[in-house]
Design a protein around this nucleic acid. Structure first.
Length: 462
DNA sequence: GTTAGGG
DNA sequence: CCCTAAC
């Protein structure tokens, strides 16, 4: 069935010329009618192939006669060079017909297109086919089918072919250069074949015994003096930075034994500094920057400055003090470990705790971002996580109170924090309420909080 | 991005 | 307060 259809279309498209190739198509031997037929055509009447090729592609280039002699070797080379399917395709398109329609008609949809391109490469080599032609096709291919990969491929391999000589179509030597480069890729069995084999699955691989290579990396390495040159030697600066980076990383890892993820900490701590140098691409720029700051041998900047008033980030500091007046006791037991700057430890003021409780009463436990946004929007240093932590601590404290005698606990609590008893009581209240709500029906309670902020009813006198 | 929980 | 996992 397929055979019949293909043959019909084949004859139809060929018209009169079909009689020339008639003998070739008489006995299709497999499902791949077109392939075998075409192949046999090429095998049987090589002269015709040559004729066809020269007639259609003879563009008046002086050296085109060479094809007459060189075809045999050309074909062989092509076969030697190209991995199975591709080789087939190339030969097909090269020798049989200059017309795409023909190929499409006999069912080479994808294959024909791709083969056409590679085929151009062959032409460029053998008959000094005008380079522009081949490049147009290649570009279209790059856009349409193989995309970036192929573009890279072209860039890495044909770059010198295009860069300087494209404007001089007469310089044969230069064309030779270019085309040789192109063929060299094929000699190295570039990254194409696998993909093509996917598309043109219908085509019978004639050179199956040819080892198939799939690793493009190897291939490029083989091709590439150019690529070699490119990634030759890192700059001194790069070396310095990377070594420093590794040093810092090692140190950091030693400090924090479980350091698989260094990013967040550095990110958070030195966010502002990261912004200062957004340009450099480093795995963890913040850290290296820190190190870079510390390293200077004789600078008196770091510790002294940090201790007094303007450490790394003036904004934060200002923020800190601006929020200070609000609280009654803003002690500043900051950690001056110059290396990894810990976030400034700010004691939670009573007013802050109250705000937090209000927030919890309003939004519910766990809505830390909501609470932060509406109750702590002014104080930038209190993150939702901080609120959560504080709530946890409060909970602990309140629980402790609940557990044992009040005087004792009050004494103890006052010893470590000047938290009024009322606050702790309220914490306990809230905790119990939300615990109850969560236990009973978490979904309902949650949605209730979200919608009308009903938990406000819990609000007890502050 | 947020939250919970261990440290 | 930090860090991480889980969502």
């Amino acid at each position: 069935m397929n055979h019949q259809v293909e043959e019909d279309s084949f004859y139809h498209s060929l018209g009169e010329e079909a009689s020339d190739v008639d003998s070739l198509l008489v006995e299709p031997q497999s499902d791949q009618v077109s392939v075998s037929g075409v192949w046999r055509y090429e095998e049987d009447d090589r002269t015709k192939c040559i004729k066809t090729e020269n007639a259609s592609y003879n563009l008046g280039v002086p050296g085109s006669n060479r094809n007459m002699e060189g075809v045999d070797t050309t074909i062989r080379n092509a076969f030697d060079v190209l991995p199975h399917e591709v080789g087939m395709e190339n030969l097909l398109t090269t020798n049989i017909s200059p017309s795409d329609d023909y190929l499409l008609d006999i069912g080479f949809d994808h294959g024909a297109f791709i083969g056409y391109v590679s085929n151009e490469g062959l032409h460029a080599r053998n008959s000094q086919f005008p380079m522009k032609g081949s490049f147009d096709v290649q570009n279209s291919l790059a856009e349409n089918i193989l995309g970036i990969e192929y573009q890279n491929y072209l860039l890495s391999n044909c770059i010198f072919g295009t860069s300087t000589h494209s404007s001089e179509p007469k310089g044969l030597d230069r064309f030779e250069d270019f085309s040789n480069s192109f063929i060299d890729q094929e000699n190295n069995q570039d990254t194409f074949p696998p993909q093509i084999s996917q598309n043109g699955a219908e085509i019978t691989p004639l050179c199956e015994d040819r080892p198939e290579r799939t690793s493009s990396v190897e291939d490029h390495g083989g091709v590439g003096e150019i690529t070699h040159k490119r990634c030759r030697k890192p700059t001194k600066r790069y070396i310095d930075e990377s070594s420093m980076l590794s040093l810092v990383n090692a140190k950091k890892r030693k400090e924090a034994s479980c350091g698989s993820k260094v990013k967040p900490s550095g990110d958070r701590r030195v966010k502002s500094q990261t912004e200062v140098k957004p340009k450099e691409k480093m795995p963890s720029p913040a850290i290296s920057f820190d190190k870079a700051i510390q390293v200077p041998f004789s600078s008196d900047v770091p510790t002294e400055c940090q201790k007094n008033n303007s450490p790394t980030k003036p904004e934060n500091r200002i923020e800190n003090y601006s929020s200070a007046p609000e609280g009654d006791s803003e002690t500043m037991p900051r950690s001056v470990t110059s290396g990894n700057q810990r976030k400034l430890h700010r004691v939670w003021t009573v007013s802050e705790v109250k705000k937090l409780l209000d927030g919890v009463a309003h939004f519910g436990v766990g809505k830390w971002t909501h609470i932060k946004k509406s109750f702590f929007s002014s104080s930038a240093h209190r993150t939702p996580v901080d609120l959560k932590d504080k709530w946890r601590n409060l909970l602990k404290a309140s629980h402790a109170i609940k557990g044992s005698r009040i005087e004792d606990d009050q004494k103890r609590s006052q010893s470590w924090r000047p938290l009024p008893k009322s606050v702790l009581c309220r914490v306990r209240e809230l905790a119990s309420v939300f615990l109850y709500q969560q236990e009973s029906s978490p979904m309902i309670s949650k949605s209730k909080f979200q919608n009308n902020s009903s938990p406000a009813r819990i609000k007890s006198p502050v």
